[in-house]
Design a protein around this nucleic acid. Structure first.
Lengths: 234, 234
DNA sequence: TCGCCCCTCGCCAGATATGGGGAGTAGATT
DNA sequence: AATCTACTCCCCATATCTGGCGAGGGGCGA
């Protein structure tokens, strides 16, 4: 079903190409609108969409990801979310909804959360103005294709961003990992040292070397980077 | 293609059921072995597999996830990895490989990284003793099915673990989020306050209230929890 | 074998974070 | 209109972290 899209995706080299590919996919899957929205990490937020550029600018410029219930829901779920099952009450949310509808975003929508290495997070959404019954039918029929499409689109987006879908990850020694893990769990240095049965000074050495490897300014920064790189299993 | 498996998955209620479902899937997809391996978060590591229980115990007991190149590679990649493209040099790694082969793990393998909310991380793998050509053919033919299967299996695993695939997430105010974000980026309190154009004291108020909401012991802990819950887009 | 990395320990002074007090504004919800 | 939450500011004393000094043993790869 996705054959022609995946073929086309193979040849994509830039975000511009990806734009075209998504347009053709929305055609192939009978979607009114479709959007790949990369939210994290590194603060580089961008979107590849079939929406009007003005709405995209408005969304990104106002940092709407912070109030968009779709983004918020996707952040805490694994499985796709249907927009109409979300909570759209609250002043800011209602305003956002109005702006979105005015901008041509369909009232029906379906979004798939996608997560990559180093805390990367993105959404892949389809939307339309269909009736409820049509929409229920549509999502049921296309969920699997959309999941696969989102997977491949994200892979391609990562390649374009980084040159590869492989993240650069510092390598910490076991003890360094232990040390940062304890700190991430909330222990003080004294407690952590105790918990690892080493002197507090030794613990400090680990923290410092980990900080160096991670190019971190301080302990909190080191823990944050280590977590972001998936080095800590907390 | 996955129809009967997905139907069966619907009815799964416990990890034991999941075990059976995976067994049937490995049959359906002609896989010699298959394993769903949940690595993070919360330190609750477990595996649902067609391997011999002794190998599973050995693996988990020795914390082999720390040296298993498959896990390490999946941690930093988004797309599936073929085992034979990994670096198997290094003493510990070679020893691990020998033990694995002795335990009946095929030398050919293919693993899909899966990430969920709150830093959840898992792998879905198939392995066999096929020849290289057979294996290349197999992976090519089944990649998409395996990606979908891994998605649904993970969803089910999350449901079993938490009762839902939705993560419990504390809600921080915008300023609290800002404050923790600055700290996660490595700024000191003084710098962070400056960067947000507020007094250092005010910043401290945010950190403290965030710490309270997140039930965190200290700043580092708060940042770690917030990151784990996807509250910070660093 | 040599070099590199990992693990372990101690002391000290200065910088920074934490904990506990109190206080006023504005906006949103009920 | 009352209440609640978010946002903003100040002081002080103490606990904790950070940076820089130095030192030795063990293991693994080139």
């Amino acid at each position: 079903m996705l054959e022609s899209f995946l073929d086309r995706l193979q040849k994509v080299k830039t975000l511009g190409d990806l734009d075209g590919a998504i347009l053709s996919l929305s055609d192939e899957l009978n979607a009114e609108h479709m959007v790949y929205h990369s939210v994290g990490s590194g603060g580089k937020e961008y979107a590849v969409t079939t929406y009007h550029p003005i709405w995209v600018d408005q969304y990104l410029g106002n940092d709407y990801a912070r109030i968009d219930p779709v983004v918020q829901a996707c952040l805490r779920r694994f499985h796709p979310v249907d927009w109409k099952r979300l909570d759209w009450s609250g002043k800011a949310t209602r305003e956002f909804l109005h702006e979105a509808v005015d901008a041509g975003v369909g009232s029906q929508g379906f979004s798939i959360p996608i997560r990559g290495p180093s805390g990367q997070f993105a959404l892949f959404s389809v939307s339309s103005r269909d009736s409820d019954e049509h929409w229920a039918r549509y999502t049921q029929d296309y969920t699997r294709s959309l999941i696969l499409a989102s997977h491949y689109v994200n892979q391609k987006a990562l390649e374009i961003e980084n040159g590869t879908d492989q993240a650069e990850i510092a390598s910490l020694s076991p003890r360094e990992t232990d040390a940062l893990t304890m700190l991430a769990l909330g222990l003080s240095r004294a407690q952590a040292a105790d918990s690892l049965s080493i002197s507090e000074h030794t613990l400090r050495v680990y923290i410092e070397s980990a900080r160096f490897k991670l190019s971190a300014m301080n302990t909190t920064h080191a823990v944050a980077r280590a977590m972001n790189q998936g080095l800590l299993r907390v």
